[in-house]
């Protein structure tokens, strides 16, 4: 962390020196910001759909603010490192970060983290993940009712590569008075393969992970575990439509460290809103089956904050919450 602060300070100093040159080409924006390129910290690896979205947004933002916008993957600590780096970065508007639920909702409850909600200023959201319950094609369980009936008589397991995917299963279990056993997987394909091979009963993942196998008749989509039905399988109902108040909600958006000058912040918000409405990005998202969903800074904050009670309840129930 020491090193990164040093970098940021050095960078700011250099920016001061170079400001005249960098903004010279664009006199209309010759005020303080942006004098150099903006970095988006992404706490997941290249290849995930969140990373693809961040890169798409960066492309639109580059055009919008007239300065380079680059994506920097900061991995490690299950995404904690990226979050901590964002919180510790200088609030000058040159460092923003992709925010998902884990960093703000899960980690602070279970361990000491070097940031709080107040460390960040939210800039707006661009998308929301779809989740679905996948089950091996050959399984005798055909409906959610079958599933609940099975869970009353035996141990029913589900795999997922992140706890947030499984929120719907925990809520479903609570609503129906049964328990589903979570088996954490390290990667998305591992979670899927275990369900197809019958090693676990179910899998909770996003469409990019499940679609190839659903199309290949190895998996069935039992229900959508999100608020909406999947656009590519409109006949499969959501858990809510089936009468269970259960949904995994993971909004994707951006935040910067608290204390960024209002002028820079306004421009960032504007650029992100523009990206959220970009047709090309929306098309890319549709191909990845991610729900494009433009959210203002306040809406995005609310979307995450409203999850807090649910997640906390789950963590308490799982006796994972730090004391």
């Amino acid at each position: 962390m020491k090193r990164r602060n040093f970098l940021a300070t050095g960078g700011a100093f250099a920016a001061g020196l170079g400001a005249g040159i960098a903004t010279g080409s664009n006199p209309a924006r010759a005020q303080a910001w942006p004098a150099r390129e903006v970095t988006i910290i992404v706490a997941v690896g290249p290849g995930s759909s969140a990373d693809a979205i961040a890169r798409g947004v960066a492309k639109v933002m580059t055009k919008e603010i007239g300065a380079g916008v680059q994506v920097k993957n900061v991995l490690g600590g299950a995404g904690l490192t990226g979050f901590a780096e964002l919180a510790a970065s200088k609030p000058d508007g040159y460092t923003i970060g992709l925010v998902n639920v884990g960093g703000l909702l899960v980690f602070p409850h279970i361990m000491k983290v070097p940031y709080t909600w107040d460390s960040f200023a939210f800039l707006g959201g661009v998308a929301e993940n779809y989740y679905g319950i996948g089950i091996a094609e050959a399984s005798p369980i055909k409906t959610v009712e079958d599933l609940i009936a099975a869970a009353r008589t035996r141990r029913v397991t589900y795999s997922a590569s992140a706890i947030m995917n499984g929120v719907a299963m925990i809520q479903l279990g609570n609503a129906a008075g049964v328990k589903f056993q979570f088996v954490p997987s390290s990667t998305q394909p591992e979670a899927v393969a275990q369900a197809v091979g019958g090693h676990v009963d179910l899998v909770l993942q996003t469409p990019p992970d499940l679609v190839p196998l659903i199309e290949g008749k190895k998996l069935r989509l039992l229900a959508s575990a999100t608020g909406n039905r999947w656009p590519n399988y409109p006949e499969v109902k959501t858990l809510k439509e089936l009468g269970y108040d259960a949904a995994s909600v993971v909004p994707l958006g951006f935040a910067c460290p608290a204390g960024v000058p209002p002028e820079a912040r306004a421009k960032l918000e504007q650029a992100i809103a523009k990206a959220a409405g970009d047709a090309e990005l929306a098309a890319a998202m549709r191909n990845l089956t991610i729900m494009p969903r433009a959210m203002t800074a306040a809406q995005f904050y609310q979307a995450i904050k409203s999850q807090e009670a649910t997640v906390e309840g789950i963590l308490v129930a799982a006796s994972m919450k730090k004391t």
Binding site: G45, G47, Q188, P189, V192, A193, P212, A284, L288
Partner: peptide
């Protein structure tokens, strides 16, 4: 199967999906 066996092929899967 659409199941990537390592990080790089996971990235390839995303590339496939982006192209529909």
């Amino acid at each position: 199967m659409g199941l990537p066996a390592n990080a790089v092929s996971a990235l390839l899967l995303t590339a496939f999906m982006i192209h529909g």
